[in-house]
């Protein structure tokens, strides 16, 4: 494995009722995508506050995605 390649760590907040389901469907459809994403299920994207996003960056995330 190459060590010089930048591998971003991405945290995703996904709404249980839509995007989280879409991510499940991507699996059912066997779509392939990079494994850098760590999904956190929330009950609505409206429940994601700036604090959560900042906390993710503080903890070392290179990118944050909010899906809803």
């Amino acid at each position: 494995m190459k060590t010089d390649l930048f591998e971003p760590q991405i945290v995703a907040f996904m709404c249980n009722w839509c995007t989280y389901g879409a991510a499940d469907l991507a699996g059912v459809s066997r779509m392939q995508y990079p494994s850098n994403l760590r999904i956190i299920r929330v009950m609505c994207s409206a429940s994601v506050s700036p604090h959560h996003i900042l906390r993710a960056f503080q903890s070392g995330a290179d990118g944050v995605m909010v899906g809803g």
Binding site: A23, D24, L25, A26, G27, V28, R30, M31, Q32, Y33, S35, I39
Partner: peptide, 10 residues
């Protein structure tokens, strides 16, 4: 499964 083995099977 849905968000791991199925989408990163390669």
């Amino acid at each position: 499964r849905n968000q791991d083995s199925w989408v990163h099977s390669d």
